[in-house]
Design a binder for these strands. Structure first.
Lengths: 171, 171
DNA sequence: AAAAATTGTAAAAATATTTTACACCATCGG
DNA sequence: CCGATGGTGTAAAATATTTTTACAATTTTT
C-alpha cells in the first residue's frame, strides 16, 4: 500500500495528476495549498510528496515552496519529496536538492519521465541498507579520507585500530 | 594543507580564480581541459574540484561536464566536486547533484558566495561522523520507515531485535 | 473475540571489541 | 646515514556486545 500526496495550487493539475499517478501509487491525496500539509501527514501514512514550488501567482521565487519543503523535512525527514516547478530556476533546484528533496521535475512535464522518476524513488526507498553495509561504507570513507592510514581512520571513527584492521582484513 | 583543482577552458577564468581561491586554499591547480584530470588526481592530493560544465564552444548541454564528473566520482568518490556553469540549465544541475556533486555555482558568479560555498564544503569535509553516530542515525531511519515496529526494523537492519531494543532504551 | 504479532524482560552462550604488547618496516629530520 | 618517530601486522587476555532462547503481557489484525 503506497500513498502519494500532491500539493499544487492549480486544480486542473491536481486532477490530471490524480489520475496519472494511480499508475504507480495505490492512493493519491491532493492538496491545493501546503498550509494543511503537516496535518495531513499526521493523520495518514504518506510515502511520497510531490510539491509545487510556485504558490501565490506573481511570486515565482519558489521560496515559499522551499519554506514548506523545510517544514516537511523537519517533521518527516524520511518521506521523499519531489519538487515541481514551472520556472527553470536553477538556484531553487539546487537549494531544494540540498535541503533533502529526492528529485526535481520541471513543468510542463513528460508523463513517462515523471512516472519513471517516482518509480525509481520508490524502488530506492524500498531497500534499506543493513547496518553492516552502512558501517562498512563509512569505515571505507574514513580510510580514504586518511589516505589509507588505519590508525588515524580508527581514531576518526571512534573505534580501536584493531577493530578497523580486522574488519578490513576480512573482506 | 588543502589544494583545489580548477577545470575550465577559459584562461581568464582560471587566472582570476587562481588568485581568488587562495583565500580558502593553500594551493590552486588549474587545468584547461578535463582530459588529464584523472592523471593529476593520481599524482597529487586534491581536496576539492571546481569543474566547469561547458566545454566545446557551441556544445552547451553540459553533458561532457557530467561525463567528467562521473569519471572523477568513479575513482575518487570522496573528493567534493563543485559544478560551475554559465547556463542556467536546471536539468544539468539536478543530474549533477544527484551524481554526487557537492554544490552548483552559476556564472557569472559572486566571489563572496563562491568562497562561502567552498568554505562550507571544506568545513563539512573536515568533520567525519563516528561509527556510533552513523549506526545510530541509520537505526533511527529504519525504525521510522517501519513506523516504530522494532521487530521489522531490526530485520531490515540485519541485527537482532534485542540489540535494537537495547540501543533504543539506552538513549 | 480469537489469533497473530510485538513488546518488555532476562540470562546464558557466542562473538566482537578493546587493551596491551612487541617486533618489523617506512619515513623524516638532523 | 642513522636514529627517532609513527604506522603495520600479529597475538592473547580482559571486557563488552550481540545473539539466542524463552516467556508473560500487551497490542494489533482478522
Amino acid at each position: 500500500m503506497s500513498t502519494i500526496l500532491v500539493i499544487d495550487d492549480k486544480k486542473e493539475i491536481l486532477t490530471s495528476l490524480e489520475y496519472l499517478l494511480t499508475e504507480v501509487f495505490d492512493k493519491v491525496v491532493t492538496l491545493e495549498s501546503p498550509e494543511t500539509s503537516l496535518q495531513v501527514l499526521m493523520q495518514q501514512e504518506i510515502n511520497m510528496i510531490l510539491l509545487d514550488m510556485n504558490f501565490h501567482l506573481g511570486v515565482n521565487t519558489g521560496s515559499e515552496g522551499l519554506f514548506w519543503l523545510e517544514q516537511i523535512k523537519k517533521v518527516h525527514p524520511d518521506i521523499p519529496v519531489v519538487l515541481f516547478t514551472a520556472y527553470g530556476d536553477i538556484d531553487i533546484a539546487v537549494r531544494g536538492l540540498k535541503m533533502g528533496a529526492a528529485d526535481f521535475v520541471t513543468k510542463p512535464w513528460d508523463n513517462d519521465i515523471l512516472l519513471d522518476k517516482l518509480r525509481a524513488i520508490m524502488e530506492k526507498e524500498r531497500k534499506m541498507k543493513t547496518l553492516e553495509e552502512v558501517t562498512e561504507e563509512h569505515m571505507q570513507k574514513a580510510i580514504d579520507k586518511c589516505h589509507g592510514n588505519l590508525t588515524s581512520a580508527a581514531e576518526m571513527l571512534g573505534i580501536s585500530r584493531q577493530t578497523l584492521y580486522n574488519k578490513m582484513k576480512k573482506k
